[in-house]
Design a protein around this nucleic acid. Structure first.
Lengths: 217, 217
DNA sequence: AAATCGTTTCTTGTATACGAAAGCTTGACT
DNA sequence: AGTCAAGCTTTCGTATACAAGAAACGATTT
């Protein structure tokens, strides 16, 4: 199950898109990118197909490929789905999680707290990711965990700014503790609800953020 | 947003794979398929990238592409995710569904009942699909609806045999009615639970089916 | 007789070349 | 001066040619 050439190109391209090197709506020049990667157009076009399937770019026949604009509506929808998927992970994890994994969650939360108290939002962000990925895998459903990770990654650029909002870190921290408690108690419904709310608030914050940006224009 | 050539090839290929023309594990011959579609290898390879991204085929570098084997475990995982996604659709739909859509659901169920009483499992299957797709769209979340439809399609070949199981149609029918009742009442949690159970039973039935097949070998 | 190494052939991966379509520029006409 | 059309340029889509790797086959050796 080794990786092929166009896979690598697709990965780096995906990374560059998500990291914002190419603004939404930008046309991706085949020839330019080809020589940038030191290959011909062929492997690049194959990489494009992958990105198109993943929904990151849009191919307009005879026009070229463009970085997809994700509108505010679609973004909110994706946050909503993320909330539901994490809820599902939590529901299943509550029934299946191991003691070792619970300990890992505690550890991640301890590091979260340390980061919060130090006011290091970047560190908090990293540990927060660890926390959530642990829950994905503890769903005991590799397919679900994969889908969760995929969407999580997709939303990453839009989640980044969230933690700088006033008081969000502390609230997030408190929610984490409640979530772990529910998982430890094996309360599936409660774990699901807590996780849903925990993620949904990101969508709402994002909504407010967008509204603010719009008003500032 | 028109469709390109390799898109069409990818679609037909996906269809042929899901319909079982190519057994899992089969190697897909580029040249053979190319001349079968009357094109060169290039557009075919581009179609392969899409299918690989969708997880239907696996590309082994310098070896070729193979139809992916979906093991029983992964299949059960996918059913579990389907259950959770449909539950999410139901939860959201309960808050957002229109009267017109409720009427459509009633109509679909009426056609389901007719098919059941006539013992036409194929017709039941079709109307059952209509019913579920209505719920997807009524989630009011196009992204979620898309993901639901994608997974639904992916599981189609494995759901097909389900309805022939003794008494499944009648039970399914009864569940549909309960689901609509919950949606009409706007009871989000109940709609979600009912849908989750409604789909989960398919996974279990499938599980039994698999066990039966294994034992029969 | 079996095993191993070399050769040959087949297939994949990539480059390049060519045809076609879309957009832009230029020029003519109203 | 503005608008429309025709040609020109650019870029996409596809075919084809070529290179490299993998598998199969055979020959030689132990």
């Amino acid at each position: 199950m080794s990786r092929s050439r166009s896979d690598l190109i697709a990965e780096t391209l995906e990374d560059e898109i998500l990291r914002g090197r190419f603004a939404p709506g930008t046309r991706l020049d085949e020839t330019k990118l080809a020589e940038e990667h030191g290959v011909s157009r062929t492997p690049l076009r194959e990489a494009f197909q992958k990105l198109a399937a993943a929904g990151l770019i849009e191919q307009q026949p005879r026009r070229g490929v463009f970085v997809r604009e994700v509108g505010a509506v679609e973004l909110l929808e994706m946050f909503e789905v993320m909330a539901e998927i994490e809820a599902a992970c939590g529901r299943l994890a509550a029934q299946r999680i191991t003691d070792a994994a619970l300990a890992d969650l505690d550890a991640a939360n301890a590091r979260c707290r340390a980061a919060m108290e130090a006011g290091e939002s970047d560190a908090y962000y990293r540990e927060n990711e660890v926390f959530h990925h642990l829950i994905y895998t503890q769903s005991g459903n590799r397919f679900l965990a994969g889908e969760a990770a995929r969407l999580h990654r997709r939303l990453k650029p839009f989640r980044r700014t969230q933690l700088h909002l006033r008081g969000r870190m502390a609230q997030s921290m408190a929610e984490h503790l409640e979530i772990v408690a529910a998982l430890r108690a094996g309360e599936a419904d409660r774990a699901a609800s807590l996780l849903r709310a925990h993620i949904a608030v990101q969508g709402e914050k994002f909504h407010h953020l967008m509204a603010g940006l719009r008003a500032a224009e």
